[in-house]
């Protein structure tokens, strides 16, 4: 029983640290994004709240909590309230299966450096990112606004299209690692990272991941200059904040997944494992911000053409070739 209580406390601590880091990093990714985008455009970016604007995320958080929480006339009450929570919930929950280190031994027991090592971890992630579509589609639909509806429908169609290529691009990884568990996938990269074995998969995955997170150049569901802000236009206060948290946590989760599937996960020399994972997450996120500062938005037909006519066939052919190569070797 004593061992159970110690384990329980450790588990709670682990979760608190994971969630704390996720949310704090999300806040500072917003800051980094604003700062970097500003520098790309020869502006200063936030620089009033604290040194270099470092207190800006905290000020934003306070502002969002104290803002009025409006619900437009004719909105579908229950769904309107539910949608932002769904987005934030699925994004945060996805991190549960991401391993952030090797097992360590404490009090004579093995403490795994992962919250839940599901043997269907990869399917769990794909299932959750499917659920995330509901937040976008329902949020857009429930707002009783034409722009929101358009944004929600666009978002739903875009996300399900790219989810397909996202899933298909990960099949070669599963074939090589021989497991759907993220812990095993990281262990399979002890000698060589999968980015060198599966460069085609990596490119398909990264493009699909960016489309999944609805960032420029794939931000057609939000498209400020034609739809206002798309599916979350009618949201204010903390409900908008939850969409925002969801987006930035999702960005980190995608960075973590890129690291786990292609960049060797938490593996790296000298530094402790969680630090390596964090470095890789931040690197991927910075690349995404950089891309956002560089590329213009795609047109909707171009978006669908890339997804269905390029990525899906390429991923399918990649599976066949990978299968043959594995069997020959």
């Amino acid at each position: 029983m004593a061992s159970w209580i110690i384990g329980f406390v450790l588990l709670l601590l682990k979760m608190a640290v994971v969630l704390g880091v996720l949310l704090l990093l999300a806040a500072y990714l917003v800051w980094a994004e604003r700062k970097l985008l500003a520098r790309f455009q020869v502006r200063y970016g936030p620089n009033r709240a604290g040194k270099f604007g470092l207190l800006q995320p905290i000020a934003d958080g306070i502002k969002m909590i104290t803002k009025e929480d409006l619900m437009p006339d004719g909105a579908d009450r229950f769904i309107f309230l539910l949608a932002p929570a769904v987005v934030a919930f699925t994004a945060l929950l996805m991190f549960a299966v991401v391993p952030f280190g090797e097992e360590i031994t404490l009090f004579g027991q093995n403490v795994p450096m992962v919250i839940s090592d599901l043997n269907v971890g990869l399917l769990f992630i794909i299932a959750l990112s499917s659920l995330g579509v509901y937040g976008v589609a329902l949020g857009g639909w429930a707002s009783n606004s034409k722009y929101s509806l358009l944004g929600g429908i666009r978002g739903a169609a875009q996300m399900i299209s790219y989810e397909l290529s996202l899933g298909l691009s990960l099949i070669p990884i599963v074939m090589i690692a021989g497991s759907l568990s993220l812990v095993d996938i990281v262990k399979a990269q002890q000698n060589v990272w999968f980015i060198f074995v599966q460069p085609v998969s990596f490119v398909i995955f990264l493009i699909s991941a960016m489309a999944e997170s609805k960032r420029i150049p794939f931000d057609i569901p939000e498209a400020e200059n034609e739809l206002g802000a798309g599916y979350h236009m009618e949201y204010s206060g903390m409900r908008f904040g939850l969409f925002f948290i969801g987006e930035y946590v999702h960005m980190q989760v995608l960075g973590a997944l890129t690291a786990v599937f292609f960049l060797g996960g938490w593996q790296g020399p000298f530094l402790p494992a969680p630090v390596w994972l964090l470095i890789k997450i931040v690197m991927v996120a910075l690349v995404m911000i950089w891309i956002r500062g560089t590329l213009p938005r795609l047109r909707y037909d171009q978006l669908m053409a890339i997804g269905w006519k390029v990525l899906v066939p390429a991923a399918l052919i990649n599976i066949v070739i990978t299968g043959a190569v594995i069997l020959i070797i």
Partner: peptide, 20 residues
């Protein structure tokens, strides 16, 4: 609580729901 399985996943889910 030592095995990373369904129990820790459920606990994490509750944690996330509480935060939201």
């Amino acid at each position: 609580p030592w095995t990373p399985g369904i129990f820790s996943l459920s606990l994490y889910t509750i944690f996330v729901l509480v935060i939201i």
